[in-house]
Design a protein around this nucleic acid. Structure first.
Lengths: 222, 222
DNA sequence: AGGGGACATTTTATCTATAATTCATCGCCA
DNA sequence: TGGCGATGAATTATAGATAAAATGTCCCCT
């Protein structure tokens, strides 16, 4: 839904804030104060409020009338929800994209997979992963579907960064390779099944809480 | 995503405009001029702009910077796209809702089906149809998924009203009954399959264009 | 007659200032 | 100590003004 070619101030603010929220630079539950944001961006509060509405629609912020807007919180339930929605919608997109996939596209997707495997931090891994999914899905040419998937990817990335914001160990993405192999052989059902399982794989990771206890955090890793 | 309990002026305006767009009271492509809307609602232009942003996110309006916002146009491709997205997401919701479905809910859904069968105009049919889908899906308790489905229902209703805005003939909804029967017997796969086919059934209807020619219009009818 | 450019109008996008409402906090007093 | 009201802060909304862009009109020139 978010147009990248939106040169309005409201558009710039919403993109910048979305980035920060996804990267975890602003914590879940933190208040977004319109006058502070306005001052930071050197604007008035009017475009800031419009940016807030867009973030709300993307699920990155929640607004309570007369009580301001906060960065959306999330829990394991929502991580699962987003993963299942991605599975359903990405499979749909893949089925429509498949007839239009070319060897060049599949090669580019394989290159993206390699870039992900050698990524040294979460951020570049996420970028490569997103590129892979976009490459094989975009040929479906269904704008509304692709926009929804983009929003879900943003949510996924947020969960991912929240969990692995510091360390990251390189790992070979066998799922991506299996999907590409199936697509090259025209085995659409197999590719779709692998994709569905892939995006629902939820990584677990122990994390030390401020109080010293150890709990597990979760994120979609695919 | 649209909260019905939003007592801000922007919320009221966006709900009212959404209703008009869905009902076809404002035609696709028509410009939404902020000052006109502001005057009509007796407000300033600021909440109007916020309302526009929400409509944009719902896919009911499109905005080009510095060129204003228009009611979104749509064609058969988008009707199909929305139908397929609904199939994918409603099946997902149904699979999660099924374990929480009670006899009371299924009875209410059957009542909604009866109301739809005896509806004398499109509008009341649409209301009953939406109630049916909401009843059997809401117990999945996945807010983000349900919000997406709601937006897609709004789009479906728009296509429906655009096609059958005048005449409407009552018809018995066999699909709804088959879905309920399957659910009562615990046959989730059968219910899901029927639901998926049901929401993708696209009604066709000949329509006279202003120029005197006859063409076909299309809408999701389920 | 028709095309092109100058000009006026409209509309958007934004800012500033200000009022009203509501929420949170803090201190006072019983 | 605990409830209660006052104060302050932030959001929500209004009003009016301004700059920039787009649209439309009209006239002139070829």
């Amino acid at each position: 839904m978010a147009k990248d070619t939106d040169d309005t101030i409201a558009g710039r603010i919403s993109r910048e804030l979305a980035d920060r929220i996804i990267l975890g630079a602003i914590e879940p539950g933190a208040r977004l104060r319109q006058d502070h944001v306005a001052k930071e961006f050197g604007t008035s509060h009017v475009p800031v409020r419009e940016a807030f509405r867009r973030l709300e629609a993307q699920g990155l912020a929640v607004s309570e009338p007369r009580r301001g807007v906060r960065v959306a919180a999330f829990d394991l339930r929502e991580v699962r929800e987003v993963a299942e929605m991605r599975a359903a919608l990405e499979v749909l997109a893949l089925r429509h994209a498949a007839p239009h996939l070319t060897a060049a596209i599949l090669d580019a997707a394989e290159e993206a997979t390699r870039a992900g495997d050698t990524a040294r931090d979460v951020r570049s891994w996420e970028e490569a992963n997103r590129a892979f999914h976009r490459l094989i899905l975009a040929p479906c040419a269904m704008p509304r579907l692709l926009a929804s998937i983009d929003d879900l990817h943003a949510a996924s990335a947020r969960f991912l960064f929240a969990t692995w914001h510091a360390e990251w160990e390189a790992r070979t993405d066998h799922d991506h390779r299996a999907i590409l192999a199936s697509l090259r052989q025209g085995q659409l059902d197999a590719a779709a099944a692998t994709l569905a399982r892939h995006v629902q794989w939820i990584g677990k990771r122990p994390v030390k809480t401020p109080s010293g206890k150890t709990r597990e955090t979760f994120a979609i890793v695919g």
